[in-house]
Amino acid sequence: MNDHNWLVEQFEAHRNHLQAVAYRMLGSRSEADDAVQESWIRLIRSNTSKVENMGGWLTTIISRVCLDMLRSRKSRREELAMAGAPEPVTGHQDGSNPEHEAVIADSVGLAMLVVLEKLNPAERIAFVLHDIFAVSFSEIAFIIGCNEPAARQLASRARRRVQGAESTSETAELQGKRELVDAFLAASRNGDFEKLLSILDPNVVLRNDSPFAPVANVPIVRGSDAVAKQANQFATRARSMELVLVNESVGVIAGHLEQPIFILEFTVVDGKITEIGMTADQVRLSGLDIAALKD
């Protein structure tokens, strides 16, 4: 069997799964078909000689395709047909495609897909992959381009929305995080070392991104003292930094929304900042959902 025939065989073996994943993410049979086709194109253009788990690799590929499609849809402010209702699966199904039939027969069906339309792209990908297809958060973080705690937060927030429980608890959580990140930024601007120590967890981890030259040689900083010292080193730059929403959570931007230099994302546990993740790579920055933070 030549390489092309082997790829065809592998792809067809996973087609039903890919179709189910894409339909869940996109809510449209026609768009799901497009996503599957694009995944095939990416497969035949890739070097798969070192791929050990073809099913997992293809799930990653189609997830990224769907994420791109969702973000493109959002940027164009597209409306799905029927006032935003997802497109029902139609066609002549004979029961030979169990995963496809499961999409139709699922107890939540279109009702679930309508709720999913209210999620932002990153939330939707995280929720569908983890809660419906049991993909690990480490894999989801790799697909979305964030750290693992952020992937967990995305899925958790999406789950609350799907369950109809976002309301006041989520608003309070977002406000609490905003106050803490705002305090971090203010202390950085003022060179207030003691204030920084008071809001950082003693074991806080700062993950720098090498494309930002000043920290290229220090990929990871551990401990509140060390993290506070780095924050103090950039006090001048911090004066021009602002709070933003990053994947619907509070973060900090250096630069402008249209052309960020880097983004800082924060993980907060029990009222302390436990992790800060920097993204400076322009490709990964373009994949983040960044928006102005309203008062």
Rank of each mutant, 00 (worst) to 15 (best):
L119S: 08
A122W: 03
R152M: 12
E123M: 15
L154D: 05
A165I: 06
E148P: 07
Q153R: 13
A141E: 01
H130K: 10
A158P: 09
L119H: 09
A122L: 04
K118Q: 15
Q163C: 08
N147F: 08
G164T: 15
K118C: 10
L129G: 05
Q153W: 02
R159L: 06
F133N: 11
G145Q: 06
N147G: 10
A155Q: 05
F133C: 12
I140F: 01
R160T: 12
A155N: 01
E139G: 00
I144E: 00
N120Y: 11
S156Q: 11
D131R: 13
R157A: 06
G145L: 04
K118S: 14
D131W: 04
I143S: 03
I143D: 00
P121D: 13
D131K: 14
F127P: 00
E123P: 12
G145D: 06
F142R: 14
L154M: 15
K118L: 10
R159T: 08
Q163H: 10
G164V: 14
I125G: 04
A126M: 11
A122I: 02
A165H: 05
S138K: 09
A122F: 05
A151L: 06
P121R: 13
N120L: 12
A134W: 03
L119M: 11
A158H: 07
A141G: 05
I132E: 00
L119K: 11
V128A: 04
R161A: 09
S156K: 09
Q163R: 13
S136A: 12
A151P: 06
A141C: 07
I144H: 00
A155S: 12
A155T: 02
Q163T: 09
K118P: 02
V128Y: 01
F127N: 00
A151T: 04
R159K: 15
R157D: 08
R157Y: 02
V135W: 01
R161K: 15
Q153P: 01
G145N: 08
G164R: 13
R124G: 10
L119V: 13
Q163D: 10
I140A: 03
S136D: 14
L154K: 05
L119D: 03
E139M: 07
R159E: 02
R157W: 03
P121C: 08
A165S: 10
A150E: 15
I140R: 02
S156H: 10
A134S: 09
R157S: 11
E123V: 12
C146L: 07
A158K: 12
I140H: 00
F133R: 12
A151F: 06
H130Y: 10
N147R: 10
A126C: 12
I125E: 02
F137D: 05
A150K: 09
E123F: 11
A126E: 03
R161M: 14
L154H: 06
I144T: 01
K118R: 15
Q153Y: 10
E139Q: 12
A141H: 00
P121Y: 14
S156C: 01
A165N: 08
S156L: 05
N120G: 11
R152I: 11
N120H: 12
S156F: 04
R152F: 06
R124L: 13
V128F: 00
F137N: 10
